[in-house]
Computed example of a mutant assay.
Amino acid sequence: MEWYALGKMLAEAKQRGKTYAFSCARNVKIRFSNEDVYELDVVFRPAGQPPLVIECKSGEFRQDIEKYVRLRKRLNLPAAKFIVLATDLEDAQAAALGSMYGLTFVTPKTLMKHMRAVM
Results as ranks from 00 to 15, higher is better:
Trp3Tyr: 11
Trp3Arg: 15
Tyr4Pro: 05
Ala5Lys: 10
Lys8Leu: 08
Lys8Val: 11
Met9Tyr: 09
Leu10Ala: 08
Leu10His: 07
Leu10Arg: 13
Ala11His: 12
Glu12Trp: 12
Lys14Thr: 14
Gly17Lys: 07
Gly17Gln: 10
Thr19Tyr: 09
Thr19Pro: 00
Tyr20Pro: 08
Tyr20Val: 04
Ala21Asn: 02
Ser23Trp: 11
Arg26Glu: 05
Arg26Ala: 06
Asn27Phe: 00
Lys29Asp: 03
Ile30Cys: 06
Arg31Thr: 13
Arg31Leu: 02
Phe32Leu: 12
Asn34Met: 10
Tyr38Phe: 15
Tyr38His: 15
Tyr38Glu: 09
Asp41Trp: 00
Val42Asn: 04
Val43Glu: 04
Phe44Val: 05
Gly48Cys: 04
Gln49Met: 06
Gln49Phe: 05
Gln49Glu: 14
Pro50Ser: 05
Pro50Leu: 08
Pro51Met: 00
Pro51Ile: 00
Pro51Val: 02
Leu52Thr: 03
Val53Tyr: 01
Glu55Pro: 06
Glu55Lys: 09
Glu55His: 01
Glu55Trp: 03
Cys56Asp: 08
Lys57Leu: 03
Lys57Phe: 01
Gly59Ser: 07
Gly59Tyr: 05
Gly59Pro: 11
Glu60Asn: 14
Glu60Ser: 14
Phe61Pro: 03
Arg62Tyr: 11
Arg62Asn: 11
Arg62Ser: 13
Gln63Leu: 11
Gln63Lys: 15
Gln63Ile: 11
Gln63Cys: 06
Asp64Ala: 13
Glu66Ala: 13
Lys67Gly: 01
Lys67Val: 08
Lys67Met: 01
Tyr68Leu: 02
Tyr68Lys: 00
Arg70Ala: 07
Asn76Gln: 14
Leu77Asp: 02
Leu77His: 04
Pro78Lys: 13
Pro78Thr: 11
Ala79Pro: 12
Phe82Val: 09
Phe82Trp: 10
Ile83Phe: 02
Ile83Asn: 04
Ala86Arg: 04
Thr87Glu: 14
Thr87Asn: 13
Thr87Trp: 06
Leu89Phe: 05
Glu90Lys: 09
Asp91Thr: 13
Ala92Gly: 00
Leu97Gln: 09
Leu97Asp: 00
Gly98Leu: 02
Gly98Ser: 15
Met100Asn: 06
Gly102Gln: 06
Gly102Ser: 03
Gly102His: 02
Thr104Ser: 12
Val106Trp: 01
Thr107Tyr: 08
Thr107Arg: 14
Pro108Cys: 06
Pro108Phe: 06
Thr110Arg: 12
Thr110Ala: 06
Leu111Thr: 10
Met112Tyr: 09
Met112Pro: 13
His114Gly: 04
Met115Asp: 04
Arg116Trp: 02
Arg116Val: 11
Ala117Lys: 15
Met119Leu: 15
